[in-house]
Computed example of a mutant assay.
Amino acid sequence: MTVASDASRRATAPYKAMRDALEALDDAVPGKFEITKEGIVHDMMSPGRPHELTAGLVSRRLEKVMPDDIWAHTGTPDVEDEPHGILRHPDVMVIARSDMAGEGAFDPRTVIAAIEVVSESNPENDWVGKVRDYPLLGVPVYALFDPRTGTGAVLTDIHPTPAGPRYATRTDFLYGEDVTIADWTISTTDLPLYGPKRQT
């Protein structure tokens, strides 16, 4: 019993050191920090208007079709799994109000769906890193909205693979089409785009 406890402490020591470092940097350095199996991810650019407008529109559209006790939450805190050494912050979390109660980070296994608006400066974090991390954390649905291209995808059906849990099903969509996230379908019309393609 003592050996297992010591091993667990050794395994989480690097994660705790990274967590402490993030807390020290959070107010001093712009951008968003997350922790993955590979270490700290820093998206140096703070989210701009198209990113935040997309998150807000997706959240509002979901909440119009979901029961009152399910929220499409766009704020803090993060989702955290200390044993796996992962700290993530979805742009939108579909979660029951009752699972938001208490202190500290959300348990990722209570998140019904994680939704990301793909970062213009670090798209690999959303399309690669989080595609790997969210099934490992037990998040059953991961939806991506990509304002770079006006496209997105919904990933579902976690299954085991030699590389760890992965999503088995990917449903792609174009902006303008309806998209189903978990049990709820919303429109993707009039979502903003980045750069020269940006809608006015």
Rank of each mutant, 00 (worst) to 15 (best):
K37T: 14
E52G: 07
V179C: 12
W71C: 03
P123Y: 05
K130N: 04
A96K: 14
D172S: 14
E80D: 01
K130H: 04
A28G: 03
H159F: 10
E38S: 13
R88N: 04
T180Y: 11
I95Y: 00
A55D: 02
R49F: 15
A55W: 01
D68S: 09
V179H: 11
T151Y: 06
D20P: 00
H159S: 15
A13H: 11
W184T: 02
P67E: 09
G85V: 13
M1Y: 05
V58I: 12
G75C: 02
S46H: 05
I112E: 04
G56T: 09
W127P: 01
G102K: 01
G56Y: 02
M1K: 05
I112D: 02
M100H: 12
L191D: 06
G75K: 00
D20H: 08
V111L: 10
V111S: 05
I181V: 10
V65A: 04
G48T: 04
P47R: 05
D43F: 08
T149G: 10
R10E: 13
G129H: 07
I40R: 10
W127G: 01
A96V: 00
A4N: 02
L53C: 06
G85Q: 12
P165K: 11
E177I: 11
R148H: 15
T189P: 01
K197E: 14
D126N: 08
P83N: 13
T189K: 15
E23F: 06
A113K: 07
A101R: 15
R198V: 00
V29M: 12
A55T: 03
D6L: 15
S5A: 15
G195I: 08
P90A: 04
E34L: 01
T200V: 09
I112M: 12
P162C: 13
V29F: 07
D27G: 13
G195E: 10
A28H: 14
E124C: 02
D107R: 08
H73G: 00
P140I: 01
W184P: 01
P30I: 11
V41M: 03
M66Y: 06
W184S: 09
G164T: 08
L144F: 04
G75S: 02
F106N: 01
D133V: 06
L136E: 07
V154H: 11
D99S: 15
H42F: 03
T76C: 00
R61P: 06
H89T: 03
V154S: 12
R9Q: 13
V118S: 05
L136A: 10
M1W: 06
G56A: 13
E23N: 09
V118T: 07
H73S: 06
T161I: 07
P160A: 10
M45N: 09
M45G: 03
E80R: 00
K64H: 14
P108M: 09
V154I: 12
T200L: 13
P108G: 05
G176Y: 09
D69V: 01
P196F: 10
R166E: 15
